[in-house]
Amino acid sequence: MALSLTETWQNTLASIKTWAFTNSPWAIHYNSGSCNGCDIEILATLTPRYDLERFGVILQGSPRHADVLICTGPVTLQSRDRLKRTYEQMPDPKFVVAVGSCATSGGVFLGCYGVVGHIDEVIPVNAYIPGCPPRPEAIIDGVVKLLQSLQKK
């Protein structure tokens, strides 16, 4: 009896936790070598046409406040450590979304001497959003899919 009670409690707690996380993903944006194309599209998702705040997404300035790290661009030598550091500053649980072809695969910049590679060579990535650049709708879709995958867990 006691066991099942705690189990119920734990289940309820877990479902509250999932609910809160899926409904309040605060994001932080890091450009590790992008051409700006993805960055302006990410910014566009906040603006009236797309309005990501509908889903509770707020772009935060401090990594300490953020749950989702949105990365754009291939990782350059110079920004590799900064990307890692930003990721490490985020409190758990945390998720990473790679936005754009370069972030997912290196894109046209693959093979350039200043480029280390794609995002998941440096930090683990939870969702990939391809496109050059992906449309704001695609970015929203990617974030929503990430949230849905959390719910299933």
């Binding site: 409904n23 603006t47 409190p91 649980p93």
Partner: peptide
Amino acid sequence: QNRIGPRWFQPLADVVKLFFKEEV
């Protein structure tokens, strides 16, 4: 600002989520 804005439970979700987060 010509946006739709957050859903009614948004501040609650934010606060609950923050309580579950790691405290650094």
